[in-house]
Computed example of a mutant assay.
Amino acid sequence: MELEVKTLDGAAAGSITVSDEIFGLDPRTDLIHRVVRWQLAKRQAGTHKAQQRSEVSGSTKKFVRQKGSGGARHGNKKAPQFRGGGKAHGPVVRSHAHDLPKKVRALGLRHALSAKFKADGLIIVDVASAEEAKTKALAARLANLGLSNALVVDGSEIDANFRLASRNIPAIDLLPVEGLNVYDILRREKLVLTKSAVTALEERFK
């Protein structure tokens, strides 16, 4: 399919042919959901921890006699039902990551790109560069494209001035094409791809 290419100033810059296998799929929300869950689970620190009964500091002495008290037959006060005791079945340090086949991850990315195109949230620009690292100047150029909440994806090499100018603009993210992922695509309203990023994606999914 043919997609229009623009400059960062909003002017026309020709067109580019893209693959229907990447941008023309009928989006499957179940695949996209699986990939997002995999991403979010994998990035969880998993450092939550509560002290178990064996880890609480305190005496193990039996504090009440076995019979005759009229109460329960307790052992020591490190049991979970007592104040200061250990946590019953509390969280432990662990990994939340789960496996997801590589083919499913790749397919999920293609469906996310197609979903963005279908929702009219995809913009192709010729280059993502700036003459100087000025945030105000870049914000004005992005406003010409109507971008206030967007993910900008460039090729392997990101322009240094563009990176410095964009990092102080709220809700504007910048990634190299190798870092493109489903979650970051979905969390922004618009997806901006440079021509070099589109070429790299075509090669990646060939």
Rank of each mutant, 00 (worst) to 15 (best):
Q66P: 14
G10D: 10
E202S: 15
E4A: 15
V125L: 01
G14R: 07
K87S: 13
V18Q: 02
D154Y: 00
T17L: 14
A137W: 00
D30P: 01
D9K: 13
E131C: 01
R167Q: 13
Q39G: 05
S69D: 03
T29N: 13
T29M: 12
P170C: 05
G179H: 14
R65M: 13
I22P: 04
R163G: 07
L109A: 09
R34G: 08
R53Q: 08
R83V: 15
G71L: 14
A88E: 11
G155M: 09
A171E: 14
E203Y: 10
D154N: 06
D20H: 02
D184L: 07
G24Q: 06
A133L: 11
I123Y: 03
G75F: 07
G86R: 11
L180E: 05
A197W: 05
I185N: 03
G58N: 11
A79V: 05
R188F: 11
L107G: 01
K190L: 05
V104G: 00
A143M: 07
A11K: 15
G121F: 02
H96Y: 15
D120T: 05
G90D: 12
K87P: 00
H96V: 09
F162L: 00
L109K: 03
T135V: 09
K116V: 02
L180G: 06
G70Q: 01
L175P: 00
R34N: 10
L138S: 08
D126M: 00
E132V: 15
G121H: 12
F117E: 13
A200V: 08
P101K: 11
Q39V: 06
L147I: 04
N161H: 12
S129A: 15
S57T: 14
A88G: 10
I123S: 04
N168Q: 09
L8W: 00
I32C: 05
A171F: 10
G90F: 08
A50W: 00
H74V: 13
E21I: 01
G10Y: 05
V92C: 08
R204K: 15
K87W: 04
G85M: 06
D126F: 00
D26V: 08
L164Y: 04
S59A: 14
L113F: 06
A50N: 10
T60H: 13
R53L: 03
N181E: 06
S114H: 03
A165P: 07
S54L: 06
G75N: 10
K102W: 03
S15L: 03
S196F: 02
A97H: 15
I169Y: 05
L138K: 08
P80M: 02
A97K: 15
T194Y: 06
P27N: 00
V127G: 00
T7Y: 08
S59E: 06
A72I: 08
Q52C: 01
G58L: 03
R110L: 14
G24C: 09
G121R: 11
V152R: 06
A140L: 13
E131D: 14
H33W: 13
G179C: 01
D26E: 15
N76C: 12
V93M: 13
D154W: 04
G121S: 12
L201D: 11
A106F: 10
F82W: 15
R53F: 00
I172Y: 03
R43H: 03
L100F: 11
G14M: 05
G146R: 11
L138R: 09
A88K: 14
S196T: 15
R37Y: 00
A197N: 11
A133F: 02
V18F: 04
S54I: 05
I169G: 04
H74K: 11
V182S: 01
V152C: 12
V182G: 04
